[in-house]
Nucleic acid binder design. Sequence first.
DNA 1: TATATTTGCAACCATATAGTTGCGTATAAA
DNA 2: TTTATACGCAACTATATGGTTGCAAATATA
Lengths: 109, 109
Amino acid sequence: MSKKYSIDKIFKALADANRREIFHLLVVATSALSLTQITAEFDISRQGITKHIKLMEDAGLIQTHNKGRERFCEVDPTPLNEIKDWLAVYDKFWDDKLKSLGDFLDKKA
Amino acid sequence: MSKKYSIDKIFKALADANRREIFHLLVVATSALSLTQITAEFDISRQGITKHIKLMEDAGLIQTHNKGRERFCEVDPTPLNEIKDWLAVYDKFWDDKLKSLGDFLDKKA
DNA sequence: TATATTTGCAACCATATAGTTGCGTATAAA
DNA sequence: TTTATACGCAACTATATGGTTGCAAATATA
């Protein structure tokens, strides 16, 4: 089970409020949205949106497909698992640490 | 319960392999580490490390204190909760969606 | 066919990032 | 007191980021 996406790119993609809003918009949308539709929800230009989409696509968070002259975007939450896995390592570490502290205290008692 | 740390800064702090390694080093360390001690583990200069530490300190992921001529760093995992909270929103969203799909199918059956 | 819409590409700008080096200063050790 | 260590500050470089505009091409509509 090799890592499909770069965790650097995933963290970077999420480290921007506009991109997180785009992500949110695509999550709650009932269907794929075109670049123009997404642009309509923001104060930045279409090219700005395009760049954000590109970055998120490279991170695996968004998938796109062309239909006619339009380009539709939809969200793919899979890469979020990389972040969850990264976090889980430390949760486990601190959990184990607490447990061994408990064992230590039990022995003393 | 207001958000103490900027989620932008937290994501940004973690979006760099060197910084994640510094974080890891400080997690597994049994005590606080000085800048020189941290620098010894990396291929970049002390000033480079200093800059990374600053960024992580601004994100709340590291706390520092001076002792004599040395500056000690230790990790603070609290800001990771901001990320967990952010992720949880979407977990809940998709969970609810699945549940209502289940309800829908139950009614049809 | 002529016009309007959606997009991509390229150039550009300002600022941030990731890194360096040099130097001065404070603290500790000889 | 002299020397060595740990650090901060400032300047500098190269590249990335977040944004813009203008223009051309493809597709849809009148």
